[in-house]
């Protein structure tokens, strides 16, 4: 065989293999170059131009970035995004761990029925979720949440205009749609934890809370960090829920970073500042995803 390795035939075979390799990946990579890679790189060019999408581009240096950084609405959108992200994901991940723990208990029957029920919201489109919850969180007295509030003797809330009302309503949508998804991911991780550990803890008289704190969470660490990473990235890209909930007139209480850049581009036709804000969003996502993963790494040690 080794003699053959140097023969022309073998060499030819190797060349044919490379050629097939390139041929097999080329349909994908051609499309990827045009619709994936080029747009990403071109954004960095557009960020330095003034352009309305039709006329000539004009180089303006860092002006677009300065404009965005000095725009109070941009900072408002970043603040909103972060608050809604925290409200929508932190309670969600905590509840998901408890739900998964309950579901993983050996006592539970109908496990697959519960799994299907928890997962159902994730199959629903974000638009549908925003519409359904938008009606529940109607600012009118007949909105379901306000009816409930009135029953408790509380006043109706103007969910669509109240500074915190908007954020809570949107956070609830995020919470509802993703809770089951993360529960199932945690459950998959928990099924890998040996039952002996829990049994030993039970014999030692550990409470449920102690089992979660000292067995489940440390064993799930990589998965928890992964879900924090994904939730961070996902919540910084929040767009559909506030757009549907607030309708055409984007109110400042609910504008997010992606809504800001979408509005710059397609309402204001300011493609330069929109690109600049896309680049800033990209950097923010890198920073937050890194910091949150590092923090999670420390906390769950």
């Amino acid at each position: 065989m080794s003699a053959e390795a140097h023969s022309p035939k073998r060499w030819n075979e190797k060349r044919k293999e490379s050629l097939s390799g390139y041929l097999f990946i080329s349909p994908f990579f051609i499309l990827f170059a045009i619709f994936g890679l080029f747009p990403m790189l071109f954004s960095f060019y557009l960020g330095f131009q003034r352009w309305n999408g039709l006329g000539e581009m004009e180089f303006v240096g860092f002006q677009n970035f300065v404009f965005v950084m000095e725009d109070p609405i941009f900072w408002k959108s970043l603040w909103n995004t972060i608050i809604m992200g925290v409200l929508g994901t932190v309670p969600q991940l905590i509840v998901a761990i408890f739900l998964a723990f309950a579901l993983n208990s050996a006592l539970v029957k109908f496990q697959s029925a519960f799994r299907a029920a928890f997962f159902l919201p994730y199959v629903t489109s974000t638009v549908a979720v925003a519409i359904i919850f938008g009606v529940m969180f109607s600012s009118q007295d007949f909105g379901l949440v306000n009816v409930f509030f009135n029953l408790l003797g509380l006043d109706s809330v103007n969910w669509q205009t109240n500074e915190w009302g908007v954020k809570i309503a949107i956070a609830v949508m995020v919470f509802w749609r993703w809770l089951g998804y993360n529960t199932i991911i945690y459950l998959a991780g928990m099924q890998g934890i040996p039952n002996d550990l829990y049994e030993a803890a039970t014999i030692d008289g550990a409470t449920v809370w102690q089992k979660i704190r000292f067995i489940t969470i440390p064993m799930l660490r990589p998965i928890i960090i992964f879900t924090i990473f994904l939730s961070t990235i996902g919540s910084l890209q929040l767009f559909t829920e506030p757009l549907i909930f607030l309708g055409g007139n984007l109110r400042e209480e609910g504008i997010t970073v992606v809504l800001y850049l979408w509005r710059e581009a397609f309402s204001n036709m300011a493609f330069g500042t929109a690109s600049a804000s896309a680049i800033i969003l990209f950097l923010i996502i890198i920073v937050f995803a890194t910091v949150n993963s590092l923090l999670a790494n420390k906390v769950f040690k």
């Binding site: 045009i34 619709f35 747009p39």
Partner: peptide, 14 residues
């Protein structure tokens, strides 16, 4: 790892 919004505007242009 790159968020899809980064390429949104050039994609629209293409």
């Amino acid at each position: 790892m790159v968020p899809p919004q980064l390429g949104l505007i050039p994609q629209y242009y293409i």
